[in-house]
């Protein structure tokens, strides 16, 4: 498995982190794991919704010191 890619969306507001994730997904292979960093709480709830809607695997979300870490796997 490839190393986990970090998508740094910290400081950006909705839908900035989602758009940065989509750019990163386009450059990734199926099976790659990615982690989005976001300081925008809305994005932390919106990105899992988007993953479920379009069909990528949502793994987990954790929050630490005001930064949300959203883990996922490219599935298609």
């Amino acid at each position: 498995m490839a190393d986990k890619k970090i998508v740094d969306g910290r400081g950006s507001f909705c839908p900035g982190p989602l758009m940065e994730l989509i750019v990163a997904l386009k450059a990734s292979q199926i099976g790659d794991e990615l982690e989005v960093l976001s300081t925008d709480k809305g994005s932390a709830s919106d990105i899992p919704e988007w993953l479920n809607k379009v069909g990528h695997e949502y793994i987990s979300t954790t929050e630490s010191e005001g930064v949300w870490h959203i883990n996922l796997r490219k599935s298609k």
Partner: peptide
């Protein structure tokens, strides 16, 4: 005043992505 994606950037991303 904040780091919100510019509307023109979002429209362009709507097309490209």
């Amino acid at each position: 005043s904040k780091k919100v994606p510019e509307f023109k950037t979002l429209f362009e991303q709507a097309v490209e992505l």
